[in-house]
Design a protein around this nucleic acid. Sequence first.
RNA 1: GCCGGUGUGAUGGAAUUGGUAGACGUAGUGGACUCAAAAUCCACCGCUGGCGACAGCGUGCCGGUUCGAGUCCGGCCACCGGCACCA
Length: 801
Amino acid sequence: MKYEFGRIEKKWQEIWEQKKVYAAVTGSDRPKFYGLIEFPYPSGEGLHVGHPRPYTAMDIVTRYKRMQGYNVLFPIGFDAFGLPTENYAIKNKIHPAVVTKRNIARFTDQLKMLGYGFDWDRVVDTTQPEYYHWTQWIFLKLYEKGLAYKATMPVNWCTSCKCVLANEEVVNGVCERCHSEVVRKEKSQWMLKITEYAQRLIDDLDGLDYIERVKIQQKNWIGRSVGAEIDFDTTAGDKIKVFTTRPDTLFGATYMVMSPEHALVAAWADRLENLDEIRAYQEAAARKSDFERTELAKDKTGVELKGVRAVNPVTGEEIPIFISDYVLATYGTGAIMAVPGHDTRDWEFARAFGLPIVEVVAGGDIEKEAFTDCETGTMVNSGFLDGMSVETAKKTITQWLTEKGIGTEKVNYKLRDWVFSRQRYWGEPIPMVYCDKCGWVPLPESELPLLLPEVENYETTDNGESPLDRMTDWVETTCPHCGGHARRETDTMPQWAGSSWYFLRYMDPHNDKELASKEALEYWSPVDWYNGGMEHTTLHLLYSRFWHKFLYDIGVVPTCEPYKKRTSHGMILGEDGQKMSKSRGNVINPNDVVNEFGADTLRLYIMFIGDFEKAAPWSTNAVKGCKRFLDRIWNLAENRIGGDGGYSAVHEKLVHRTIRKVGEDIENMKFNTAIAAMMSLVNAFYETKPNRAEIRTLLTLLSPFAPHIAEELWEIQGFEGLACQAQWPEYDEAKTVDADREIAVQVGGKLKTTVTVPADCDDATAIAAATSDEKIRRLMEGKQLVRTIVVKNKLVNLILK
RNA sequence: GCCGGUGUGAUGGAAUUGGUAGACGUAGUGGACUCAAAAUCCACCGCUGGCGACAGCGUGCCGGUUCGAGUCCGGCCACCGGCACCA
């Protein structure tokens, strides 16, 4: 009989679907396990070979858990709002909803082709009104609690997408999606106060089972730093507030710098003697894109504000004030005290402008470079701080400033509030109206979902407004508050909105009363294991943690963190070791692989390819090797011998070891070595034919990895029920160990030979066995044995003199 | 510049966390089967020397700790990812 993968894969996919073997049951008594993968964006290109890596991994984990008796929730959905679909729609004059529907159908076929055990009754689609109803509802709640606000501020504007971007979406000064130039633009935007959660987003990481690099990257992104805020008096009467992490160096502050956008510059217009020069600098700074700004980072530029001076609160000296674009408007207070002796940037600026550099921490050579070390230095030229360590000086000066009312301790974060509006059509409408009398007014919950209207033209307007802006009938409305004239918000939500809570909807996807029932949320929360890409660490993963914490605070969800465990997979590279891309021509289409080798082979290969967390290049030859392995299993089933009892004496030990190894490896995401262990078992079965019990165990172990072939052989062998519903086999630790051990014999730490000894034998027996070996005896001739080291069941090391 | 990570045969990668380096797969070589090829099955497969038993070397480089180091410590080099004038 031939292994017709095409036929059997289709056959079992239909049977599984019909029998609903992957249905999750809310409220079941069995322990629950919620395994989650990042739902795909249904692009026009269809599934990429990168997708099956995390999907197959979690499919294996959840199948394994199911076989262990867990009530498993393993859902799938589509994150379908977004720019590529909209752009495709514009180009081809098709409604994005139609494009989305088509793409989702294609993705669904491909996912089913790979035999994933998703609960297809729980599919979510973020573009459906039944879904975005609740995305909008969460927004209203955020607004109600003061966490959504409208603000006019400089935002990142992608010149190609004609759309604002969140900070997280700007990579190296260009748009994360289209790589076009990003410029700063003043715009009125909806903002979400993620900064309010900064500390909790850091603190709560401690209790989570996330891979370490994810935690580190999130912490770095949030960027907490502790210091002080200090007020400097000025000759204009206003105070300049600065933030510093080095209040200990206050005596060395010889000038001040404000960002070019700082409000005091405008306030002082009348007093400034060189206003033209200042204005010119401000304009030049505003014109620079983020990219240019970082490019030009080497040389410090700036202009002194002539006519106003600041006063150093500890030295009493008048010091000059500059504006320079090395000071960012959006961090801290937008102004700094410059301590050129002990800050690299201030040092460079001081050198460029010939400003005095004073040493206040001894230990370096400030003639050559700024001395920034906080560990070793001693305070000098600092009045009452002299002789103190930096740490002590920090505490002392902060206390002093607080007592005098000049400053206070202060924590700052790099994280900024989340720019939440997009000037685009294909997104969730923001359920707010602007009333001339009442200002911004939220829609009442009863009016949700606010449907996305049909428009004729999806393009952004020339003045950078959303296409919805042209929909006069839709835009013009009445104020829910006073009934007067009002206009709807025409911006839509960003791509990240729908994905910030989708894992909750899976728990109760058809609920039309609330985002999910209390019962379902209590039963399934939190997600037990979430696997996804590193690229989402500071985007989706952070955003969804923020939303979840908010929902926890208002009593909607029962846990303060959404995901208990987070892991991440490496990329699949092309055969040339380069990132797969159409232009390189190294793209592998999963459909081709499935047609040629079958879904089981693809699944197996993609897990065997290498360390799950690392990038790995594709190898068609190695795919063939996996197909060969399945062929060998297929042939094996015809070559087994009878005997329904237990395992045979020849295989027992290896079978027990393999059960242990495969189970442990699945839990630790070491799928490659789990497969290697099964290969070894099959190799042993080729040496000595397996019996029925051994075949049964092999098929059970194989089932999570290659479910179709396992199921078919299961049926052929006449085992009861379905392979995918079989119980995971038990192993007996006692049966995994040998009666005898082959241990290493070393002389002076160098391996000379091996000897066989009884397992767990005492040291004397091991030494006796080693020293009676012919070869070792020869080496010992004429030498004196000065020391022996014995490691039980491993080795004997003889030290000779 | 700062923060993470990686470096092992021709090749993808293993190695119980300080204890027999190279499991498993790919490629390669030899053999069986075949008129032949493919497929399949069996064997070999780190480098150097030797007919050989065997000896020496070997986990990016240099040093150290240890009876013993791919694994730990110090100093380099290379590559990958993230952040980047964050005061």
